[in-house]
Design a protein around this nucleic acid. Structure first.
Lengths: 204, 204
DNA sequence: GTCTATACAATGATAGAC
DNA sequence: GTCTATCATTGTATAGAC
């Protein structure tokens, strides 16, 4: 007999599937596990999502939409380029904290092996984010706020910092530094890790 | 009838399993796929590795050993801290290029969801690398070569750059920049992305 | 919309011959 | 060491009652 739970059957199925897909992976998660965790039976899942692939797509669609919306709403042009990059990254971090299992799942789909899943193209989400960041970087170079360098290189470094912060929080929480650590990391990459050489004007 | 191939049956099984585990994941890869790709039958795999888990462990053991050995052999104390960090990273990049599928698999085991696999602790490999890098960072701060900051923060930034370079090469090869890109990224993070403020000594 | 019961394919693993 | 043949289990999915 199914156990009574809060929320609609559909939402409980989604939550259960997200949790399992995120921690055990898509291929290793069975329909049986999902429906038991949701407190329903198999036909309920097939009624709402048609197939295992169906619930997979529903999850990815939703989280991709969340990210796109966050991106769109955090791209105001107020402030310096540095301030706008900070704002973008902290908005992404908030999504990550609010929807941790879903973001973890999306991350594993994007970077991980194809676990017998049909192609679900997340590159458009990546392009939206990378494109926005790269535009900010290019603007910073034009305005003289950022050092002139390859805009792609700089974009990749910034993306690496955000991505690695999330990965650490997911896999090695004891090493993770949270939002404050992300801020410190941004400070460091903008400032540079090396001690700067003496300024040319005061050299003999 | 099994197809004749080069190499021992054991090695062919390992190669086939690595390729499948790296691209499709552990859980989504069946014994049948592995043995067919290797040109042998199932009992051959069970003879050499006892179980699916056995071949999984054999692969991870081997690649973890390779990384540990690379780490140990690239830690000479010659040169500046910056030169030694470059040397360490480029050595890791070489392992990555030589054993791309195996490293990809190891990466997915470390960062990805547990795909129904028993615990295989790769944290010791991570600690070896992170520990060596962090020691270099601390030395650079003591000697005045690196800006004083939290050594953990700096270590994480450097690790992020290496990790993200590899991830890009695996998943988005068109965006990846290879070894030269890794060098440029290191230059940028040491130098800093921002234009430095005017030197204090020449300020009014 | 959700259930009970079940169909049917694929999987990990093994016995026993050679 | 490697094969053929086979097994028990698990997996996705569906029919039909309510």
């Amino acid at each position: 007999m199914p156990r009574a739970r809060n929320g609609s059957v559909r939402d409980r199925l989604l939550d259960a599937a997200i949790a399992r897909f995120a921690t055990r992976g898509y291929a290793a998660t069975s329909i049986r596990e999902i429906v038991e965790a949701a407190g329903v039976t198999k036909p309920a899942l097939y009624y709402h999502f048609r197939s295992k692939e169906g619930i997979y797509r529903a999850i990815l669609d939703a989280v991709a939409d969340t990210i796109d919306a966050t991106l769109a709403s955090s791209l105001s042009t107020a402030g310096s380029v540095r301030e706008r990059i900070d704002r973008l990254f902290l908005a992404m971090w908030s999504v990550f904290e609010r929807r941790r299992p879903a973001v973890r799942f999306l991350n594993s789909v994007f970077w991980g092996p194809k676990q017998g899943t049909p192609a679900f193209d997340l590159r458009s989400v990546d392009r939206s984010f990378t494109g926005a960041l790269r535009a900010l970087v290019a603007e910073g170079m034009t305005s003289g706020e950022l050092r002139r360098a390859d805009a792609g290189d700089v974009t990749r470094i910034l993306a690496a910092v955000l991505s690695h912060s999330m990965d650490l929080a997911l896999v090695l929480p004891r090493q993770a530094q949270g939002k404050a650590g992300l801020r410190r990391a941004l400070d460091l990459v903008f400032q540079g890790l090396a001690v700067p050489p003496p300024h040319p004007e005061i050299a003999p």
